[in-house]
Computed example of a mutant assay.
Amino acid sequence: MLRKIGFVGLGTVGVHMAANLAKSDYQLTVFDEDAHAVAELAKLGVKVGQTPAETAKGQDLVIVIVPESKFLVFGENGVLEGIDPGTILVDMGTHCIETIEKMSQEAVKRRVMFLEAPVWGTKEHASNGLLTIIAGGDESLLGRCREPFSYFGLNIIHVGKIGAATRMKLIVNLLQAEMMLSLSEGLVLGEKMGFRADKILEVLDSGGVASPLFHSKGRSIQRGDFSRNLALKYVHSQMNRVLETAESLGLELPAAKTVCGVYAQAVEDGRGEEDFSAIVKLLRK
């Protein structure tokens, strides 16, 4: 039975995932380089590790959710330096396939059990336990993790072997970015023709193009609320990864190329740290 959990990465989504785990009976130890995020979790009574290696030591399950640019798994004081044989290591970030394969190989060398399980959703989804978890790896191993995952995930979907979840997340990232740009173009066109955003959204909600993303993000845009749930710069980097993968497969994705270019322009204009719904501001110039 899993009782002790190490959690590395308290970013926009990770901090809420860890906070939900803190409400459980698991013995939770957390680590992040952000002292403020760590302090907030410490208020909930969880232990704080001084390094990723220390946080991973002596645990039954170690969850890592950090950007690839700040990876804390490899190297001195990294998670793999401290993790014990027989521990389950789960990477819940969104990384390139080469990173996932390297983690899997290093885990095998250390007799550590490994799952890739990138999460999909906003900080509100994380806070309310409504994330989707896309898992790749041993399905029986995922079965052992379903109970702790249920504290922050509503949908837990196994899609295949190691590497499959990362590839599936590319599809999610592609469609999510394209949908946000489509929504933004629709709103801007409608506004120029004299329609109010709420009326446009009422129509969209009633028909075949209705979607949770259009509903929630459309109303946030209507309110002028661009509070960061998913940074625009991350969506841009994910679209670059989609295009690199498509190229390696000999595929031409013209819409993806165009969308990536629009996000690139938004980043260049200094909107990278804003929520990805801020792409609408670029079109309103």
Rank of each mutant, 00 (worst) to 15 (best):
G129S: 03
L130K: 14
L130R: 13
L131C: 08
L131E: 12
T132C: 10
T132H: 05
T132N: 02
I133M: 13
I134C: 09
A135K: 02
G136T: 00
G136A: 03
D138Y: 02
E139W: 00
S140I: 12
L141S: 11
L141E: 13
L142R: 05
L142P: 04
L142H: 07
L142T: 09
L142Y: 01
G143L: 12
G143I: 12
G143K: 13
G143S: 07
R144V: 10
C145P: 01
R146Q: 14
R146T: 14
P148M: 05
P148F: 06
F149A: 08
S150H: 03
F152G: 02
G153R: 01
L154Y: 13
L154R: 15
N155V: 09
I156Q: 14
I157Y: 03
I157M: 07
V159E: 09
G160M: 05
K161A: 14
K161H: 10
I162H: 12
G163E: 06
A165F: 01
A165V: 04
T166K: 02
R167W: 03
R167Y: 10
M168T: 15
M168N: 10
M168D: 04
K169P: 07
K169H: 12
L170K: 11
N173Y: 04
L174G: 08
Q176T: 14
Q176W: 04
A177V: 04
E178D: 11
E178T: 10
M180Q: 12
L181Y: 06
L181H: 05
S182K: 03
S182Y: 10
G186H: 08
L187V: 13
L187I: 15
L187G: 01
L187M: 13
L187H: 01
V188N: 05
V188A: 01
L189H: 07
G190L: 11
G190W: 04
E191Y: 04
K192G: 08
K192W: 04
G194S: 07
F195R: 04
R196H: 07
A197L: 13
A197Y: 01
D198S: 13
D198C: 10
K199A: 14
L201P: 00
L201T: 00
E202K: 12
V203S: 06
V203N: 02
L204W: 11
L204P: 01
L204K: 08
G207E: 11
G207K: 09
G208R: 08
G208I: 14
G208M: 14
G208W: 12
G208K: 06
G208A: 14
A210Q: 13
A210H: 11
A210V: 08
A210C: 11
S211E: 01
S211W: 07
L213R: 04
L213P: 06
F214L: 14
S216R: 09
S216F: 15
S216N: 15
G218W: 12
R219I: 02
R219F: 00
S220L: 08
I221Y: 00
Q222D: 10
Q222E: 15
Q222L: 15
R223I: 01
R223V: 03
D225Q: 09
D225T: 12
F226N: 00
S227I: 02
S227C: 02
S227G: 13
